[in-house]
Structures are given as C-alpha cells and as structure tokens.
Simulated scan of single mutants.
Amino acid sequence: MASVIGNALKLSIFGQSHSAGIGCSLDGLPAGIPVDLDELQRFLVRRAPGRDETATTRREADAPEILSGITDGHTDGAPIAAVISNTNTRSADYDELRRVPRPGHADFPARVKYGNWHDVAGGGHFSGRLTAPLCIAGGIALQALAQIGVEVVAHIANLGPEGIADEPLDALELDDAQLAALRAHAFPCISTDAGEHMRRAILSARDELDSIGGVVECAAYGMPVGVGDPMFDGLENRIARIAFGIPAVKGVDFGEGFSAAYLTGSENNDPYRMVDGAVKPQTNNAGGILGGISTGMPIIWQMAVKPTPSIGSVQKSVDMDARMDCDLTVRGRHDPCIVPRAVPVAEAACALALLDALIEDGRYPAPAPKK
C-alpha cells in the first residue's frame, strides 16, 4: 500500500482506522516557518469525529504528538513526523465484513488484492480516519501559505438528493464577509439557512438508516501567477491526486468544470484587461488555472463526495466464504454524511498541492536566519 505523494514536499501517511495510532511524515518544508500548534489543533477539531450529531458517535481527541521537525515553534528543516493515538475503537463490529463485503466499500476488491490479509476493522487503511494525518500535514501547509498571503477556504456547496445549495465562494477575489461567516458558523456553510436545511437533511437520512453525499467547493486566494507545469504536474493534477486520496471522493473539477462542455468558447473564455498596470482576467471560468499554471486569479475547485457506504439499512451482499447470496446489516459507528467533515480535508489537500508547487518552482521564500 503506497501512501506517499508529492514532488518537492513529500507526504507519507501510515496507520489503520483501529490500529494503535495513525500518523504522517512531511519532508521538504524549508526551515524557519512558524507553526502554531494551537491553531493546528483547532483545524484538526473541525475534521474530528464525535463533535456533532450529524457525525459518527466515535469520539477521538485527534491531538497529534509531534515527534520531529518543529523546534521552538518553527520548522527546523528535518522531516516533520506526527502521530495520533486511536483510543475509541470497537473492532468486533467489523468481524463479519471479512467474508460479507459492504456494498459501496472497498471490502471485496481489497480481499482479492491482499489475499484477505488486510485489516478490515473500521475500514483499515481505506478508512476516512486516515484523513486526520492528512490534515496534520495540510494544517501546517495552510499556515505556511498564510505567511505569503495565500488563503485557502472551503464550504459545502450543495448537499443531498435535494441539491441544497449554499452561496458560492467569490470566484474573483476573497470576500471577507464570506470568510467571517464560515469562521463564525459551526456548520461549514456561508448561509445560515442553507446550513440548517443541510443539517436537517443529514439527520433525516440518519433516522432512516441511510446516508447522503454532496459537493465541497474550495478556493485558494492570493496564489501568484505562473506557478505550476503543463501536462502531468499541473496544479489541477496535483490537487486532484491528493483529493482522490480522500475516501468517498468520486469527482473533481475546476472552475466551470464539466459545465464548460456546454458553453461556447466566447462564453467560457476569460477576457483580459490591464488593471493597475497588470494583466487581469475579467472572469474566472478557468478556476485560476490554464495549462496547469496559475493565472493569478483565485483557484476554484470542487470535489464530489459520495454517500457513506456503511448504512444501517439491510443491503444485498454475498458470503464470500460460503459462496452464496446473503443480506448484510452493517454494525459500527458511521457518519450519515461525510461531507461536513470533508470540508477541512479539502483545504488540507489544496494547501499541500499548492505549497508543493511553490517550493518546487522556487517561489516559496526562505525565512530570515534566526538571530
């Protein structure tokens, strides 16, 4: 199971949902970047389980132990290593899944690939639990980007079969009012009304022993123009590679995305004008990226998150040992909707991808020497 990604900034994630711990190593950060561990903990709490009735009842502190790479509140140039202990596990809930796979989950193909040696408890290495160490690394990357004026923000764009929609993020510039609203709301929506409607939909799915999915929209404001590469190391590629490492993500698009296929060129092209002596697109259908390279406009992208496959309703499955059809009722503790907790994970994925590109391009400035 290769769980390593990045060019200049290399992230490795280890652990399983119910192993003793989960963690990461992050190699390639320049020395001297300030890291506020209290701010990092607040970021991790946004993703952590058991904080809201719309989430799983499994409760974990998700307090990382930083083993290396940070000294005196700053990166020291060595790889950052961090671990989170798993303290609230009920592995017996998953024993049946080794032979009776959950529809929509990785149980069946994982058994074939790994010869039934894989860890099934809590989903093992396939679990959304592994987004916690992703958020450790991403939370540090967010702080590093903030040092150069890059702000990454995400919210639930729409949710569930009804398509409950939030106000879209401003595609042209950072809207301070939107940012303030997101920071003020416990539920990750700009609109209070949309957030309440979404909460009711999630609780209704939970009561019906079902689940729902949705779309997370993420934006990066303040990215300089000219960062990234064509072909295989473009900014879209880098973001998408990490985003598809988030369990339950089934689609990623940028700017107008798939909607651009239904526009004409004159509608989809972003016209240029000179503004204060600089070239500036007047619209942002491209989502801030052309040819894999940043245009200087906000980077706007979305990720589609499927409904949680582990649901309480009876589902059709098979007994792979007995080679016969059977029904499955999933036990354990599961989110009726993954989307709210996926919002900070989208921010983490975006921050890691952008910081990797900035460092590789030599665009991330070296901090002043310590006195």
Results as ranks from 00 to 15, higher is better:
residue 321 D to T: 15
residue 172 L to Q: 12
residue 71 T to Q: 06
residue 211 S to M: 09
residue 39 E to R: 14
residue 139 G to W: 04
residue 180 A to D: 13
residue 16 Q to K: 12
residue 38 D to F: 10
residue 309 P to Q: 06
residue 234 G to M: 04
residue 48 A to E: 00
residue 302 Q to A: 11
residue 323 R to D: 14
residue 104 G to W: 10
residue 117 W to H: 14
residue 344 P to E: 04
residue 198 M to V: 00
residue 246 I to K: 04
residue 15 G to S: 06
residue 357 A to V: 02
residue 38 D to H: 12
residue 130 L to G: 08
residue 156 I to H: 03
residue 200 R to N: 15
residue 88 N to Q: 13
residue 71 T to E: 01
residue 350 C to D: 04
residue 227 V to K: 05
residue 99 R to Q: 15
residue 346 A to K: 00
residue 138 G to F: 01
residue 234 G to Y: 00
residue 215 V to N: 03
residue 124 G to K: 02
residue 238 R to G: 06
residue 327 D to F: 10
residue 345 V to L: 09
residue 226 G to V: 14
residue 136 I to E: 04
residue 290 L to R: 15
residue 82 A to C: 01
residue 232 F to K: 09
residue 113 K to W: 02
residue 140 I to P: 01
residue 114 Y to T: 10
residue 76 D to N: 15
residue 327 D to Q: 13
residue 336 P to Q: 11
residue 191 S to G: 08
residue 98 R to A: 10
residue 280 K to F: 13
residue 321 D to W: 11
residue 83 V to W: 06
residue 301 W to L: 04
residue 6 G to P: 06
residue 84 I to N: 02
residue 317 S to E: 07
residue 234 G to E: 01
residue 161 P to Y: 02
residue 76 D to A: 06
residue 169 L to S: 01
residue 151 E to D: 14
residue 307 P to I: 03
residue 227 V to D: 06
residue 255 G to P: 01
residue 240 A to E: 01
residue 56 T to P: 08
residue 155 H to L: 09
residue 274 M to K: 11
residue 260 A to I: 03
residue 34 P to Q: 09
residue 185 H to C: 03
residue 230 P to M: 09
residue 297 M to K: 13
residue 173 E to R: 14
residue 304 A to D: 07
residue 355 L to T: 00
residue 358 L to K: 03
residue 265 G to F: 09
residue 203 L to S: 11
residue 231 M to C: 11
residue 218 C to M: 09
residue 146 A to D: 12
residue 188 P to V: 03
residue 360 E to F: 13
residue 280 K to T: 13
residue 346 A to T: 04
residue 177 A to Y: 10
residue 25 S to P: 00
residue 241 R to M: 06
residue 278 A to G: 13
residue 134 L to H: 03
residue 45 V to E: 12
residue 265 G to I: 02
residue 133 P to D: 08
residue 42 R to E: 12
residue 54 T to A: 03
residue 108 F to K: 05
residue 318 V to W: 05
residue 105 H to D: 01
residue 281 P to Q: 12
residue 110 A to E: 06
residue 13 I to F: 04
residue 127 S to W: 00
residue 44 L to R: 03
residue 90 R to F: 15
residue 34 P to E: 06
residue 173 E to M: 14
residue 169 L to V: 14
residue 363 R to F: 09
residue 157 A to K: 05
residue 67 L to S: 01
residue 10 K to E: 00
residue 130 L to H: 01
residue 180 A to P: 05
residue 343 V to L: 02
residue 158 N to C: 11
residue 183 R to A: 10
residue 98 R to K: 13
residue 265 G to C: 07
residue 319 D to N: 15
residue 184 A to C: 08
residue 140 I to V: 05
residue 345 V to D: 00
residue 273 R to C: 12
residue 17 S to T: 02
residue 143 Q to C: 05
residue 225 V to N: 15
